[in-house]
């Protein structure tokens, strides 16, 4: 039997060392960045921002562009409001909320217990707004796909969630203090892109906004 040269062992060991160091560095880097973002987020009490949403769905002949306003107040208050082309939205305060339809002026209260879809939506929005690292890393495989601007790509861990959404891309502002753009990619060609502008951190946001 031919003997394997000693140099081969050395090379193999060296390669393993390099690969594992790179993996460890990447993990350390991701953890550092996530922790950094989470620390910044912990200082955020309120967020107020305009947004432009582009909805690319095969069910529509054309891209639907909508605009609106988003508000958040730690730790469980949300307001997501469309201003054009529809005037719909919802506000959430804890586990109860209200949905409104600007076309007919109706307001419909809901609870997260009774509206599972709103429960999913609210849980996602709150986790992103407060950058709940524990929840996000539990639900998603997170990768840094660009460092400037900082861009994460999130892939749902749950198979059930992956049937609805394949990936989420989150792009932070240059100063990494707010989210600039979110892309939600579904299976197939459909995706939604939301761009946030005029973001104000820790500005005054009355509680009544969320009722």
């Amino acid at each position: 039997m031919r003997r394997i040269p000693f140099i081969f062992y050395c090379l193999t060991f060296f390669c393993c060392l390099c690969v594992s160091s790179a993996v460890m560095a990447a993990q350390t880097d991701l953890r550092t960045v996530l922790t950094d973002i989470e620390k910044r987020s912990q200082k955020i009490i309120t967020i107020s921002s305009d947004f432009v949403q582009e909805t690319h769905l095969s069910m529509f002949d054309d891209t639907v562009v909508s605009t609106g306003h988003f508000m958040f107040k730690a730790k469980d208050k949300l307001r997501w409001e469309y201003l054009t082309p529809i005037e719909d939205g919802f506000a959430l305060d804890g586990t109860t909320g209200v949905r409104w339809n600007g076309t007919d002026g109706t307001r419909q209260p809901f609870t997260l217990q009774n509206d599972p879809v709103m429960h999913v939506v609210a849980t996602q929005l709150l986790a992103w707004a407060s950058f709940d690292q524990q929840w996000l890393t539990k639900e998603y495989d997170i990768k840094i796909t660009a460092s400037s601007p900082l861009t994460f790509t999130l892939t749902p861990k749950s198979a059930a969630a992956r049937t609805v959404m394949s990936t989420i891309t989150i792009v932070f502002s240059q100063h990494r203090d707010s989210v600039q753009r979110v892309e939600l990619h579904e299976n197939g060609q459909d995706f939604t892109c939301i761009t946030f502008t005029n973001t104000v951190i820790n500005g005054p946001v009355p509680d009544a906004t969320f009722r």
């Binding site: 909805t55 769905l57 069910m59 469309y82 719909d88 879809v117 709103m118 939506v121 996602q124 609805v164």
Partner: peptide
């Protein structure tokens, strides 16, 4: 479909 619920309910 335009709202955040759209993706789940498409």
């Amino acid at each position: 479909l335009v709202s955040p619920r759209g993706m789940a309910l498409k």
